[in-house]
Structure formats: structure tokens, C-alpha cells
Design a protein around this nucleic acid. Structure first.
Lengths: 347, 347
DNA sequence: TTGAAAGCGCTAACAC
DNA sequence: GTGTTAGCGCTTTCAA
């Protein structure tokens, strides 16, 4: 094992006390310029590197924060995380990233892990609704501030950053209605691929869809809301294939996310059903693939950078001032209309 | 600030010494079952949590390893990282993830950060060729084992995991040649969108392409190798658009990665040029979008899970036995032929 | 302006 | 089996 030089080594070589070395290195006042200079030079020449464990132990601060996301294979969360890192690293913090594969058990393990690492705060996007609510509260009561982003747990009293998923789902569904009407169908059938029930957002987005349909007095037969078991392209493909086989082809389809929508489009294409000629399709949470597909996929784009920055800022606030009031920030989103829903946008 | 209970608090409440508490908690032998039970119960009831900083300080082990990747917005690296996390977390390690946005300066900052956090080892995929070579060596000489994956720096003597990028590029190019020949073009023009020169892989993949073209005595005019400035869809689109304007449409196009290929396909489509009818296109490092595009994109799929597991295993080996010999593991890949290159595979 | 000493929470000889 | 003691590397009173 290589022995790294310590302030004691520096002190010994210079024939002074370690306190002085510590002060000089920390940039504290009350050290003669002369001495300070010598110490700094010596430290550099010895390739001294402070031991953060020791530092943290005495200061009982770690300058580490943790991030917990449900997954990071899609670019969605990584893009947010990059902003979080930017802000915190510029403030001298380290960022510990964990992902839990949509499992609440793993999420809890990650939270434990982060607490063990003595993080000073945690940014979290909830995997499964409800399961860890008490644990979030425990963490906060043990003095570790928590801030939610994107997927929140509203029964916990702390800061959060979201978009208005209800509103944008409503708009998305309404857009499909208007588009189909413009194409001559006065009473279009709008279908919804609803996300898994254990994700809170599934219900919220579904409500937005349902209310839009209700507002326009359109059919809201039960079969029009299709609950899916996971939110992958494969599942979207499978569901739509089944519907086609059963002759249940809607005029418009609003999906919980882009992956489902892209899978559905693939099934429609394979059956020779034209998108958007016969069916208008919309996703949510604009993915990279939305622009690759043919036709390009209409979707609700979230302000990922802003979400990251805002969430990071809110956590920093909580860390620096534990008694600061909680804030629920709701950011704006954008409805990007493309060829998958609107024929006039097709290439 | 909340005061967390320490082993001293437990010892005081129980009227015993802190050493016994420490031993009991660590599961060391030589503690009476009776005592141990009482201590464990007390610890639980006091909601005791060990202080890892103190633990690490005394043991001078942190059980943290670091990961440095060039980016993690594409699913490529995240998928590898998940495997790394799985292995290390099952061994009681924590994994610190950093990304450097393809910048070698940020990469160096990340390495410093990790060293400061006293990681016991680092897994790295190199951003820019050469720039940090000396720094990698320094880290190793300071006792921090380094293992490369995917993008290596061969001038550093340590373990690595890669695929044979040369070979697979050669195969990819050859596949394009065979396909165009089958379509009746005896001397097809195969073009290559070559990655940025500062990424080592760019040159390797380009050599594979060039050698395949040479082997078949085909044209290798300079204009057929197009150096791109970044590896995004936008750049692929831009380059191909320019080529089309200048009437330089090849029979086959092999791209450094899928993004470039997808961008090029978009440009071709917009100009009414049929893929794969007129031009066969291939990407590399299969992305999620490869299956979304129409036609689906042919690409070289890398065994991401295996890369992650193998790299993690190699690092673990280095950590547990610093003198273990370095191993250069080369994994297999798969050439996935789809509709973008082979008309018989089109849907 | 500098040094001595105590202590952050924990582990690990070494005694008893 | 259990307690005592000496650190791990650093910061921070308190004196000088």
C-alpha cells in the first residue's frame, strides 16, 4: 500500500506544527505569508492530497449528495442528472448516482446506501407510488433533506419540481380530437395506452386524457383505456397488434410515453394502417427516437435542463438552510406536433 | 443538526465498553451471545447507523469505486454501468458515476474528484485519445487500479475490455460490398462517415473499412472517407445533405455510429433516394433507435452486459490483488443485418 | 503568528 | 469475554 503524505509529514519536514500546516492549506487567516508560501510549495512538491474522509469526519460534512432515479437507460433522466451534476460540482459537492430499475425495494436499498454514505441531501424521482412514503419521511426527520423531481410523492411534505402532467395530457388528447375532427370525423374514438398503475403519473395522465374526452362528449368506453404492463416499445407493439386483430382500431391514440407510441406505430405500419392518415398517434416525454421514427412522433417535451437545475437549486436551499420552506415548482412543457398525429406535418 | 447515536452512546446506555459494542456490531467472534444480542437490540432501538467516514478512516478503505464515461445520454454506457453496479454493490461497494461530455479536461477533473473521494479503483472509457495518458499512469502508480472498457488507451499497461472494432468494421464494410454486388453493381462505391480524430476508435474503425475496400479492389478515393466533427444525427444529416447536393451519392455507407447513419438516412429519404434500394446504410454500436427507424438500421451490436460484467470483474481482481497481471479481454460482437442495408430484409 | 491538545467515530492490538 | 489504549488525518479551541 502506498502511503500518501499527510499534514504531519509536511509539518515534520518543515519543522513546524501540523496546526499551522492545516491552517495554511485551508487558507485561514493568521498565517504569515512567508510561512504559508513555504507550506504550499512543500505540499505541492510532496504531492500532498487532503484526506476527505478525515476532513469529513471532523467537520461532519461530506459534501456529497445523492440522486435516485427509476432508470437511466433512456436519455430522459441522464439529461436531468447532467444539470444536477453541473450545479453541485460547481459548488464543490460530489454527486452519487443510483438507479433502481423501477423497483421500490431497490429504491429503498439505494436510499440506505446513500444514507450510509452520509449524503447531505437526496434528489429523487419515485419509482413506485406509495411504497417508500414512510421511508422518505424518516430520512427527512433524520435530517437528510429530500427533493422530488418528475415523479413525486405528494404525501411527503418537501420541495418538488414537476410539469403539470394532467394538463399536458389533457392538451395532448384534445389535440388528437381536434386533428381528427379537422379530417372530417366529428366523433373520433380516442384511445389511451395507460402506464402501470403503480406509477403515480399513469393515473394522472390518464385523468387528463379522460377529462379531455369527456369535455368533448366523446366515447369513453372502457376498452378505449388500455392498461399496459410495462412501458416499452415491445409492449406498445404487442397491445396494438392485439387491437388490430380484434378490429379495434381507434382514430387517435395517446400513449403514456414515446416507447409505447413507437411500438404501436410499428404494429400499425406492419398492418398497412396509415399514420397519421387513419390513426393519429401521440407520445409523452419526448424521447430521442421521436425524431427518428417515420413519421416523426408528436410528443410532450419536458424542459429537462430546467428540471435538473431547479431541482438541484431547491435541494441546495434545503441543505444550506434546513428550515427553508418547501416549494412545489411546476414548470412548463411543450406540445410538439409532428407527422404522427397531424397529416399536414408529414414529410 | 441531529446527533446520530454512536457506539459510545450505546456503550454508555448499556454500561459496557465501546470496544465490545464495536466487536458485536462487526460480527467479530469472542463476544458472548447474550451480550451481543443485547447490543444489537439496543443499537436497533436507538436507530444506530455506523459512520462510514470513521470506519473508512481507520480501515483506510472506502469500498467505493469510480466510473468515468464520455457521455451517458445514449443508452450505451448506462447499460454497461448497470452491470458494473450490480457486481460491485453485491460485494458491498458503492459506485460513483461521472461523465465528462467528451471533454478530456472534464475527464481529468472527474478523475481528480474520484481520487479525492478515495476510490479504490476506477473503470474508465476514454474520451479523447492521448490527452490524459500520463494521468492514468499516475493514478496507477499512486495505487489506484484503472481498468479500461470500450474506449481504451493502449499505451497504458492495465486491464481492458473491448470488442475488435477493426474486425467488425471490416465485416460491416464487406457486408455492404457483398450486398451491392448481389444487387448487380460489381464495383460499388462504399463511403465512410469517420468519427472525430481525437477519438481513437475513429481511426480503428476507419482502418477496418479501408482495408475491406482495398481487399476487394474497390475505389478508395479520398472523398469517400468523410470526417465528421461530431457523432450526432444532425451531423449525419448535414453531411449527407451536402453530398446529395454535390451529386456524390455512394452505393453503400458505413458510419462510425448509428446516430450518423440515422441522420444520413433522413437526408436520403427527404431527397427521395431509396434505402436500401439505391443506398445500403450501416451503423455501429447498435442504439435503441436502430429498431425504430424505417427501414430498421443494420448495425454492429456490442455485448453490453458482458462488457460491464467483465470490466467490473477485472477491476475487482486488481483491487483484491494489486499485483495480478493485466488482462486484455476482447469480446465478441454481432453484425445485425436489417432493412437499411439489405433489401431482402425490408419489411 | 504559532503550537499543544482534544476530539470527530471507529478499529485493533494488547492487556486482564 | 471484555476493557484499555492508541491511533486513522484532520480541524479547532485555547494558550503562549
Amino acid at each position: 500500500m502506498i502511503h500518501n503524505p499527510t499534514i504531519i509529514d509536511i509539518a515534520r519536514e518543515l519543522g513546524i506544527s501540523k496546526s499551522t500546516v492545516s491552517r495554511a492549506l485551508a487558507g485561514h487567516p493568521g498565517v504569515k505569508e512567508e510561512t504559508k508560501k513555504v507550506i504550499l510549495e512543500k505540499a505541492a512538491s510532496m504531492r500532498y492530497r487532503p484526506n476527505y474522509m478525515a476532513k469529513n469526519l471532523t467537520k461532519s460534512r461530506t459534501k456529497i449528495i445523492g440522486v435516485v432515479v427509476p432508470e437511466f437507460v433512456n436519455s430522459f433522466f441522464p439529461r436531468i442528472i447532467i444539470q444536477i451534476q453541473n450545479l453541485f460540482e460547481s459548488r464543490g459537492y460530489h454527486v452519487l448516482i443510483t438507479q433502481c430499475d423501477e423497483s421500490w425495494e431497490t429504491e429503498r436499498r439505494n436510499l440506505k446506501l446513500l444514507e450510509d454514505s452520509m449524503v447531505e441531501g437526496i434528489l429523487i424521482s419515485v419509482a413506485v407510488k406509495g411504497e417508500n412514503t414512510q421511508y422518505y419521511r424518516d430520512l427527512i426527520s433524520r435530517g437528510i433533506p429530500l427533493v422530488f423531481f418528475n415523479r413525486t410523492d405528494n404525501s411527503v411534505d418537501t420541495s418538488s419540481v414537476t410539469i403539470d402532467d394532467y394538463k399536458w395530457s389533457f392538451f395532448a388528447a384534445e389535440h388528437l380530437i381536434y386533428t381528427r375532427r379537422k379530417l372530417g370525423k366529428e366523433k373520433p374514438e380516442i384511445m389511451h395506452f395507460m402506464g402501470p398503475a403503480n406509477i403515480d403519473l399513469s393515473n394522472i395522465r390518464c385523468r387528463g386524457y379522460a377529462d379531455a374526452v369527456a369535455k368533448h362528449h366523446l366515447s369513453s368506453e372502457a376498452y378505449l383505456t388500455v392498461p399496459v404492463k410495462d412501458i416499452t416499445r415491445e409492449e406498445g407493439y404487442r397491445r396494438m397488434s392485439l387491437l388490430i386483430e380484434n378490429g379495434r382500431i381507434p382514430d387517435g391514440l395517446f400513449c403514456f410515453n414515446d416507447h409505447l407510441a413507437l411500438g404501436a406505430m410499428k404494429a400499425l405500419r406492419e398492418h398497412g394502417i396509415c399514420v397519421p392518415g387513419s390513426v393519429s398517434v401521440m407520445g409523452f416525454s419526448e424521447s430521442q427516437s421521436a425524431l427518428v421514427s417515420v413519421p416523426a412522433l408528436s410528443s410532450v417535451a419536458q424542459p429537462l435542463e430546467e428540471i435538473g437545475k431547479t431541482a438541484a437549486g431547491l435541494l441546495l436551499e434545503k441543505i444550506e438552510n434546513p428550515d427553508s420552506p418547501s416549494k412545489k415548482v411546476v414548470l412548463n412543457a411543450v406540445l410538439n406536433i409532428r407527422g404522427s398525429s397531424d397529416p399536414s406535418k408529414s414529410m
